[in-house]
């Protein structure tokens, strides 16, 4: 059995390894599939659906869907790009996102994707939910207006004895992420920072620290999201 799988992405021939997801294989071949909830090294949740592709006429989240021999993937096609943009727009209207006053501006992946998709005004009406800024233990704040329920915090931040520090509450549009306050307070400084850094938006914030890097010199101020992966078509 061969250890190399051949697939095509938008007609481009790519090689992949068994067990890779479509998104990983694409990245390894210099193709960027926009994604939001995924975080390198964490089990993908498949929650945001921004990375949706089409395989054999069926829609799949490329962050969770495994490659198989001969697979033909459609990704950067107009209708899929529009769906991705729509999902980003949904996330904007679901919360209350005020980029100019957000600590994460310039480092925010939601904002970066909105720029990438050239979003001006969401096609959907704003829902203007009433959300609060909540203390999450002694070290962290959760700005619930900005949470996009990506589940990175729930998946990735655990105590030494593997207890969940973050987790989802409720369901439907009422769903929210919160913490076990005692465990969150006891997080070592490094992990508290990690929680903030892993949050793709400005929801999880380390108290008393902010704007260490000025707006204008942040990650996506320098280069658009995905540009580290994308290679021009040869």
């Amino acid at each position: 059995m061969s250890n190399i799988i051949k697939i095509t992405i938008d007609g481009r021939e790519c090689t992949a390894r068994p067990g890779q997801t479509v998104l990983e294989a694409a990245a390894a071949n210099g193709i960027y599939i926009p994604s939001l909830c995924r975080f390198e090294g964490l089990k993908p949740a498949g929650s945001c659906r921004v990375c949706t592709v089409r395989v054999g006429g069926r829609y799949q989240a490329s962050c969770t869907f495994p490659v198989s021999e001969g697979m033909a993937v459609e990704s950067a096609v107009p209708d899929l790009e529009d769906m991705r943009k729509a999902i980003v727009e949904m996330l904007f209207v679901e919360g209350n996102h005020m980029c100019p006053t957000c600590e994460k501006s310039g480092n925010c992946e939601l904002q970066a994707l909105a720029y990438r998709f050239r979003m001006l005004v969401p096609r959907f009406p704003y829902l203007f939910p009433k959300k609060a800024v909540e203390p999450a233990g002694s070290k962290l704040l959760m700005e619930q207006n900005r949470c996009i329920k990506c589940l990175r915090c729930a998946t990735g931040i655990r105590t030494k004895d593997n207890k969940k520090v973050f987790g989802p509450l409720h369901r439907s549009v009422e769903k929210k992420l919160f913490v076990d306050p005692a465990l969150a307070s006891a997080l070592p400084e490094r992990w508290a920072r990690k929680a903030m850094d892993r949050c793709p938006v400005g929801c999880i914030l380390r108290k008393e620290v902010g704007f260490a890097v000025p707006v204008g010199r942040r990650k996506y101020d320098k280069a658009p999201i995905g540009s580290d992966i994308e290679k021009p078509r040869s």
Partner: peptide, 21 residues
């Protein structure tokens, strides 16, 4: 459907609310 969506993924959690509106 709005009430029963588990809220895991964006299109179902948000989209159904928007459709209903």
């Amino acid at each position: 459907f709005v009430e029963e969506s588990c809220g895991w993924c964006t299109p179902c959690r948000v989209g159904n609310v928007l459709l209903k509106r």
